[in-house]
Nucleic acid binder design. Structure first.
Length: 574
DNA sequence: GCCGTTTTCGGCCCGACTGTTTTCAGTCG
């Protein structure tokens, strides 16, 4: 039983409780617990009751329910409530505009059991027998169902961010905006986002709204008010735009950036201090005196908190740390000195060594590691031993001509399904850096596939495990690895784990990154570049690192060349 | 259901937009 599965039960139970009209705070407790369970770095099923109650939002009762799920695979309270309502009602509630109240009414009055029932009745205009529902609502429900059926899942950050940036530049050109910024989960650098949140200031908000809903790639207008509008883009993602005054920009940014859980915590703290926080500012409760809001910092200062960087705002301990002035100084793009996972056209990359060097120098890098695939990966043009030796010679020759920049000799060796590597140690010994990864046998048992990673880490020449879980966001599940064991062995053997910055990988993910760095495992933030443009992916990797609470010193490729080479040789002197 | 430099009980974040209403409930973020 994985954390995801436990979280899903709690989430579904929360939905059923909503249908049942239960206390909203009780419902929130289940949802909050689900979220915390999902981002818990170890399996909650294995955790002791004591560890569980230490988790935020988990008390005696929920700890007991987690144990029950771990032991029986089921939750009685959930199963009981499921008998009260058809399973399809949860999907009915997923239709935009249909919440628990409406869903329950539809079920009781019209016996709507699932989304198909709802669509049929709405098409036949038979929903209008329900008080409060007339033609317009019926049409909106039909639109909403169409949207649900298109299954607009969460969009990978790597698609959403460029799209959002393009929209920002267009709006600054076509609309009377003064300043314009991204907020929401994009600003927090979540690996996938549900929608794009944009915030701007303007003296003519209504003109901005008008320009916004008329953008060329707008497919549907979902809401259109004087200061807030939402549209659905042809690219399949929703965009919310809000206009505020300059004096409120900071508080609006804080509010609109979220996360929701983080904001709720802030507002709870505010209430206790006799303050009120909303998107317009910080106010004193007794006389409504405004204490700030121009800058985001105003909010945190008013609460006696250290400023919390957006990437940390998940209510996963950042507020407690900020109270003690104990937040880490997070790694930044400018700290990155080079890239330790790069392919050339000798294997499946597109560019020559020289072209890559030029592109890397333009970025201000001091080094890159050339890590072509090796023979085990025939499909990717993996290099034979002889070809790798040729490459080594070419790199040596090139390095003699380079000043202030170094090409590191490396390889991305394949960890075969029998735990062996596809290059002998004598050859690995000649390299500056060895990256190892799994490219086959994804369906092996957890024990087998974890065993392969552990064996590779125990090889004295392997420096880095690349894309450790193999997941492709929205396309392929992670291998069934025992992450605790991987992190522990990485710490014991001094092997680094990679954050692969490819937008569909972002692997390791933020939660594991935080757990690994906590045990002193070095992290490499690498782009796995196959074409020069891929160097741009570094910002996604750095985003994951920041979400994983990493400081500069936790990251291998923030080291200067000399220190890096020393660190790489520590595991085994070449 | 959780949680406590006000509290072990009684609180628990806040406001915009929509559709349907004549003042607001429901939904959403």
């Amino acid at each position: 039983m994985k954390n995801r599965d436990v979280a899903r039960i709690f989430n579904d139970l929360a939905e059923l409780l909503e249908l049942n009209g239960e206390n909203p705070f009780r419902i929130r407790a289940y949802k909050r617990a689900a979220q915390n369970i999902e981002s818990y770095p170890k399996d909650v099923a294995d955790a002791s009751e004591e560890d569980l109650t230490k988790m935020p939002g988990i008390g005696k009762d929920l700890a007991g329910k987690i144990r029950e799920i771990a032991n029986t695979g089921k939750l009685r309270a959930y199963e009981d409530l499921r008998r009260e309502f058809p399973d399809g009602l949860i999907e009915v509630m997923s239709v935009p505009g249909v919440g628990p109240k409406t869903a329950k009414l539809l079920y009781e009055k019209l016996h709507v059991k699932d989304i198909d029932d709802l669509e049929r009745l709405a098409s036949d205009r038979r929903l209008e027998t329900i008080p409060g529902i007339r033609e317009k609502t019926e049409q909106n429900i039909l639109k909403g169902i169409a949207m649900v059926k298109r299954r607009t899942e969460r969009t990978p950050l790597g698609e959403a961010l460029p799209l959002a940036e393009e929209m920002l530049s267009r709006l600054s050109k076509d609309a009377p905006v003064d300043s314009i910024e991204l907020a929401g989960s994009i600003r927090r650098f979540r690996e996938t986002v549900k929608d794009i949140d944009v915030l701007c200031t303007s003296t003519e908000p209504e003109a901005v709204m008008k320009a916004f809903i008329k953008l060329p790639n707008v497919k549907d207008v979902i809401a259109h008010g004087p200061t807030k509008s939402s549209v659905f883009l042809r690219e399949g993602i929703q965009v919310d735009l809000r206009v505020v005054e300059d004096a409120s920009l900071g508080s609006a940014l804080a509010y609109f950036t979220g996360s929701k859980a983080h904001n709720i915590r802030l507002r709870e703290m505010a209430v206790r201090k006799g303050l009120k926080i909303n998107e317009y500012g910080v106010f004193r409760e007794k006389d409504d005196k405004r204490l700030g809001g121009e800058k985001e910092e105003d909010i945190y200062r008013a609460l006696g908190l250290q400023f919390v960087p957006p990437e940390l705002r998940e209510d996963s301990g950042e507020i407690e740390a900020a109270l003690k002035n104990n937040l880490p100084k997070l790694v930044e793009m400018k700290d990155i000195k080079g890239d330790l996972h790069v392919h050339t056209n000798r294997s499946d990359g597109s560019h020559t060594l020289k072209e890559l060097v030029e592109a890397a120098r333009k970025r201000g890098y001091k080094y890159i590691a050339i890590t072509d695939h090796t023979k085990g990966l025939g499909v990717a043009g993996g290099l034979s031993e002889k070809e790798l030796l040729d490459e080594i010679r070419e790199i040596d020759a090139l390095n003699k001509k380079l000043r202030g920049f170094r090409l590191l000799k490396g390889a991305e060796v394949d960890i075969r399904s029998d735990e062996s590597l596809d290059l002998p140690d004598e050859l690995l010994k000649k390299l500056d850096v060895v990256v190892a990864s799994i490219h086959s046998g994804f369906r092996q048992s957890s024990k087998q596939i974890t065993g392969r990673l552990l064996a590779a880490m125990r090889n004295p020449y392997v420096n880095i495990i690349a894309h450790p879980t193999g997941r492709l966001i929205g396309k392929r599940e992670a291998y069934d690895i025992d992450m605790d064991a991987v992190i522990k062995t990485a710490a014991e053997t001094g092997t680094a784990l990679e954050i692969n910055s490819y937008p569909l990988r972002l692997d390791l993910g933020d939660v594991s990154v935080r757990a690994a760095a906590g045990l002193g495992v070095p992290i490499s933030i690498a782009t796995d570049t196959h074409a020069i443009a891929n160097f741009d992916y570094m910002r996604y990797g750095v985003g994951v690192a920041r979400r994983g609470w990493l400081r500069k010193d936790d990251v291998l490729n923030t080291l200067g060349l000399t220190a890096l080479l020393k660190a790489l040789k520590k595991k085994h002197p070449r």
